[in-house]
């Protein structure tokens, strides 16, 4: 089957660089799936879970928050604000982070809108991570 080059980078590191068969990403206008030979596309990502099918037919799950995707003739590039592969994520830490963020939201009634939006984004990010981990686990157990 035809593959396409794929690269996902954050300001901190290159999360994954591999040949893939297909990718599903959450964009602001809904989830899209990109296969090789897709028309060139630029779109904005929202916080969520990316699902990839690697060249060896394995599936990889990546949680992502913000950024954009650029599809070129022979390459897909995702420039994400943050991204983690599901297998690197530690569930208990995510739960703790989510709790902390929710706590902050509760206490944040009197802070300004910007702060509130930041906290909401944080919760969303943790939720996406959790979602990624769960998906990853389901995938593993089904094998």
């Amino acid at each position: 089957m035809k593959t396409i080059k794929f690269e996902i980078v954050t300001p901190e590191r290159t999360v994954l660089k591999q040949e893939i068969l297909q990718i599903s990403v959450p964009t602001t206008s809904g989830e899209i799936t990109v296969l090789p030979d897709h028309i060139p596309l630029v779109s904005v990502l929202k916080t969520g879970v990316i699902e990839l099918k690697l060249a060896d037919n394995n599936t990889e799950i990546i949680s992502v928050s913000g950024g954009f995707i650029e599809v070129m003739k022979d390459k897909i590039v995702i420039l994400a604000d943050t991204a983690e592969r599901a297998e690197e994520l530690d569930e208990s830490k995510i739960e703790a982070a989510k709790l902390r963020a929710e706590e902050a939201k509760k206490n944040a009634k009197f802070v300004d809108d910007v702060e509130f939006a930041n906290i909401s984004a944080k919760i969303e990010k943790e939720l996406a991570r959790l979602h990624a981990v769960n998906k990853w686990r389901k995938l593993k157990s089904s094998k």
Binding site: T28, S29, P40, V42, S43, V44, F68, M72, K73
Partner: peptide
């Protein structure tokens, strides 16, 4: 030299409004 005739989703202005300032920030950073 290949020029990509991108499709922008949802729309060029929306996408570029978000992307370009971000890209500039990254460059300066």
């Amino acid at each position: 030299n290949f020029v990509y005739d991108y499709t922008f989703e949802p729309s060029p202005s929306e996408v570029l409004d978000l992307i370009i300032p971000r890209l500039l920030e990254v460059q300066l950073y």
